[in-house]
Amino acid sequence: MLNIFDVDVVFKDVKSILKFVPISLNISIISGLIGLLIGFLIAIIRIKKIPVLNFLSGVFISFMRGTPIIVQLYITYFGIPIALLYINYYKGTNLQVANIPPIIYALAALALNTGAFCSVIIQSAFEAINPGEIEAAAALGMNGRQRMFRIIIPEALELALPNLGNQFIGVIKGTSLAFTCSVVEMTAQAKIIGARGYRYFEAYVALAIIYWVIIIIVEQLIKIILHFVRVPDVVGNVEDKKLYRKHKKLLKKQGGVL
């Protein structure tokens, strides 16, 4: 039998790449969360127009948007050791480059990159909130922190969530470049097993399938979260779940009009 393309090899490759799913997911979740935090801080700096910091974050965002991720990975990979050498020289410390696990480089680069993009998303979400509601909260006597956590963030979250989800999907795919920092994750593993028998195509097909499935699952998760965060369209006792389900069916039957 002709086996120019061997399906069995694809299945075998899927199995061996699957072992590296946790590494890829860990990198994306950790750098995604750190990125979210960085993005939130930068968004606040930019909205409040804090002098100096506002300018610096402008430069940072511009740089992160203006250079490819792979270049940013290279810069952290080669930049951090050089920075350590300088620190050792001036502070007299003895920090060893070899002690830094390679995953740190990937995390740093991806987190900074995500932070820049998240800040733009979060800033626009904050600016899209009806200022009247914030005024109403102030008029009730709520202080800045209460307004932020009880009114502004819940609303901004709904507005930002679809875009943040998109950004997270971008991060997951971005982890495929972590091999440039000598992290062995899914893509690196596919390269390695492809090289073993020169069955590169099968390895990459297996890799593509795994990425695709992961991202379909993430998309569904985002949809579920959005469903809970959004104000429902149906009119009625939405806290009564039974009634809500009934309305949902009605909505579909009537083509969206209740």
């Binding site: 009247g132 509601e133 005024e135 109403a136 909260a137 009880r150 819940p154 709904e158 104000v231």
Partner: peptide
């Protein structure tokens, strides 16, 4: 307010309760 400015993410009841519980 002229434009009502109710909290759009909260139900009617929670809108009225907000100031009482938080402030």
């Amino acid at each position: 307010f002229q434009q009502f400015n109710l909290f759009s993410k909260k139900t009617v009841l929670k809108n009225v309760m907000e100031g009482l519980t938080v402030v």
